[in-house]
Nucleic acid binder design. Structure first.
Lengths: 269, 269
DNA sequence: GAGTGGTCTAGACCACTTT
DNA sequence: AAGTGGTCTAGACCACTCG
């Protein structure tokens, strides 16, 4: 009933993406339920008055997002699973907490220059003892501590950052605005560990409590590593939610991760 | 030098995918290094003699795989990072270990019918106490225990499986062959925990050692949940490696996971 | 046989980046 | 101004699935 009026050819938003959003909206509203058949590419094309390639691009982007999946000769179906909010967000603490209605805050523990140790130097492709800027923050949700994050940045790349940056604000925004540095990729390693005495005090847990340990190296324009972050998050407050889907391309057993979320746990025990 | 001869128009392999493999090969061979510019879509099209849309599809599929990334007005660049083997495999214990040259084996602890508890019943959309088939295995690499996996399957869906299935072989292959059941998606939750006495004995670690806890629900044709797996993996032997890339589509701060691997750790401490 | 998604063509215009 | 990727068109043939 509201297929045609939902599309605006004058809009700056690409047609295929308008169709994408339109279908996604119908799924979120429950008009299309998991397992339901989406309109065929041909039907979308004729109903909305676009070429089939454009309709196809819209459907393809839904599949890429893990919201639907296609079967040759049969059609495209709505995937099952929590379509809670956007499903491909990840790991930005502030965004994540805002999306869940908690108030994210940070307590700055330290913001200073230190010499790179072996691990930091390797990650940032520096030589040991090179000067790096260190920012240690306790991440809190509604004044309850959730994790500790230590960020390391090459001091040479961001001259003056320590003087101009307010460590209570967004580091990523500051890097983009002041230095034109945009992150394009990151490698992240997740391990498990036990809370040390120091971390236990900061996070208000028992020493020896299980914790997530994240180590992330972020790259600008995929060339130079510009940030290394070590994070320790409370194991009793977080879980990682992944949505996996089988890879169709060129058959086989490979899988890919369609979406992933780091979620707070219900408070227990 | 070997652009044209690498493409075979008579092959059943799609043109765009042949081009994808061709470029990937050049990257793996080091002819194209991280940060290097790929040939433009127009150049690929004219050099190989395909339409630009086909060349574009090849480049797009490389970007989808996290191997490259595009910048409007500038070009498409090779991503940095480990292109070790295929980068989008995940979590199939047997594959993972084979790829790393370890010999994967399993020790079957139990293979029996049990009544679904609350957690299993919820995950499989059954009522509590429904009969389910349970398969508990210790996963080993070179005879060293790496994790414990408990699989639960609705008994009603797989009548006779207990009698015909050899629990030392691949469960997924058996489901596909005997019941025509193919998994299309899965939801996975990763938590951290401490080894219980029972798990500690099976995994040969100290009680209270940190462990990964995976809980995965797999769906057939994205409709019915057909398998629920609880896994406990040694925290001193595994890490999760994720490759993140910024999402381009319609600007914003969202990220997506391009690839993920569960890797064994070097034995330490 | 009718309908579906998968692939492919040969053009086109645009916004953006670099020279 | 030239080159790039982003989008879009209006067709086409194919392999596959289903009734």
């Amino acid at each position: 009933m509201l297929t045609a009026p939902a599309i605006d050819r004058e809009s700056a938003v690409p047609l295929y993406y308008q169709i994408h959003l339109h279908l996604l909206h119908q799924i979120e509203e429950g008009l299309l339920k998991p397992g339901d058949l989406l309109p065929s590419e041909q039907e979308i094309a004729t109903r909305i008055g676009v070429s089939r390639m454009t309709a196809r691009q819209a459907v393809k982007s839904l599949c890429d997002a893990g919201v639907a999946y296609s079967r040759r000769g049969r059609g495209t179906f709505v995937s099952r699973g929590k379509q809670e909010k956007t499903s491909t967000e990840l790991l930005s603490f502030t965004q994540e907490m805002n999306a869940r209605g908690s108030r994210p805050t940070s307590r700055v523990i330290s913001f200073d220059y230190v010499q790179a140790g072996a691990e930091v130097a390797t990650a940032l492709h520096l030589t040991k003892n090179t000067k790096v800027l260190r920012l240690v923050r306790v991440r809190m949700a509604d004044s309850s501590p959730m994790g500790v994050e230590s960020s390391f940045l090459p001091a040479s790349l961001f001259a003056g950052l320590k003087e101009t940056f307010d460590p209570r604000t967004s580091l990523y925004q500051a890097l983009a605005k002041q230095y034109g540095v945009r992150m394009v990729a990151a490698d992240e390693v997740t391990e498990v560990g036990l809370a040390t005495t120091e971390v236990a005090n900061l996070l208000a847990v028992q020493k020896g409590a299980p914790v997530f340990i994240f180590k992330r190296t972020s790259y600008a324009e995929s060339q130079r590593p510009v940030e290394y972050v070590q994070s320790t998050y409370r194991g009793d407050r977080w879980k990682i939610v992944s949505r996996l889907s089988t890879s169709e391309q060129s058959g086989g057993d490979a899988r890919r991760v369609a979406g992933r979320q780091l979620l707070p746990l219900h408070a227990e025990r």
